[in-house]
Amino acid sequence: MAESLEGYTNKVIAYLDGVVAEIRAGSLIVQAGAFGLEVFAPKPTLMVCRVGSAVRLHTYFLVKEELLALYGFHDRDLHTLFTHLIGVSGVGPKLALALLSSMQTPLLAGAILQGDAGLLASTPGVGKKMAERIILDLKNKLPEELLAPGARGKVTTLSSPAAEDAVGALLALGYRETQVKGVVAQLALKEPEAGAETLIRKALAQLR
């Protein structure tokens, strides 16, 4: 049965409208009519949902070896990134959700397009080899529209001298690259004008 359905993966349910009945660690229970559907979702989606609130989720329906699982995303770009990530050999839905949960969409897309394996490897469960494989597979496939509007056409703007200085200072303090790179990059994306000292101070507050 699973083999006959696999061709319809991600085509059966394009989106889901319902009411959030429960929020769990890595999933939502969405009431749609008389049904309560468990929908696995990344952290950004879980954070914007509220119990009792109506929600529309872009969905990915996975059929694999007798397993049926529904994944949902409040944002279409998250859905797009998810579908690309699980197309990489060795990247399953769990790891793809971890990547989507660890950093904002423009930052994750920028890391792939820019070839920043260190930033990808800052996600728990993603080693350097896996990060390099993701970059190799997706660097020429990922739509540039996933980047922040001001970064399109010039991917390198996702990093800055201040961010690089902040990472270097934190490494000198004994923190590992996988600990600091993602934190600093997220901060720099939120505050592009922030200096190295500001980034270091805010990063330390998160790392401690």
Rank of each mutant, 00 (worst) to 15 (best):
A111T: 06
G125K: 05
L120I: 01
L100Q: 05
G125P: 06
S122Q: 05
D116M: 00
L136S: 09
K139C: 05
A121R: 06
T105W: 11
L120F: 03
M130T: 15
P143C: 02
G127K: 10
Q114T: 00
A109K: 06
E132L: 07
S102Q: 12
S102E: 10
S122G: 01
D137C: 05
G115P: 07
M103N: 07
T105N: 12
K129G: 06
G118A: 13
G110C: 03
V126K: 08
K128M: 13
M130S: 11
L108M: 13
L142P: 00
S122E: 04
P143H: 02
A117P: 01
G125F: 04
K129D: 07
L113E: 01
R133T: 05
Q114Y: 13
A121M: 09
I134P: 06
L138W: 10
N140L: 09
D116R: 00
G118I: 03
M103R: 08
I135A: 04
G110Y: 00
D137H: 09
A111W: 10
A121Q: 09
L100V: 08
T123L: 05
G118F: 05
P124V: 11
G115Y: 00
D116V: 02
L100K: 07
I135Q: 03
L142W: 02
K139L: 04
S101F: 06
M130F: 04
L100F: 07
D137Q: 04
R133K: 15
T105Q: 12
L107I: 15
E145N: 09
L107H: 05
N140A: 15
L100H: 08
P106Y: 11
I112Y: 08
I135K: 03
G115F: 01
P106K: 03
Q114A: 11
N140C: 08
L119V: 04
L113F: 01
L142R: 02
G127T: 02
G110W: 00
I135D: 07
A117F: 05
N140W: 10
E145S: 15
L113W: 01
I135F: 08
V126L: 14
A131L: 12
R133H: 10
A131F: 14
A109N: 09
M130P: 04
S102A: 15
M130K: 09
G110A: 04
L120W: 01
S101A: 03
A109Y: 12
S122T: 02
G127N: 10
G115V: 01
G127W: 12
E144N: 10
I135R: 02
S102G: 11
L136E: 01
S101I: 06
A117M: 07
N140Q: 14
L136F: 12
M103T: 11
G127E: 11
P124L: 14
E132P: 09
L136K: 14
A109L: 11
L120T: 00
M103K: 03
M103W: 03
G118W: 04
T105G: 06
V126P: 13
P143S: 02
P106L: 10
M103A: 12
S102I: 02
E144A: 10
A121K: 05
M103E: 10
A117I: 09
Q104S: 15
L100W: 10
P106D: 11
E144Q: 15
G110R: 01
G118C: 12
K129A: 11
L142I: 00
T105H: 10
L120G: 02
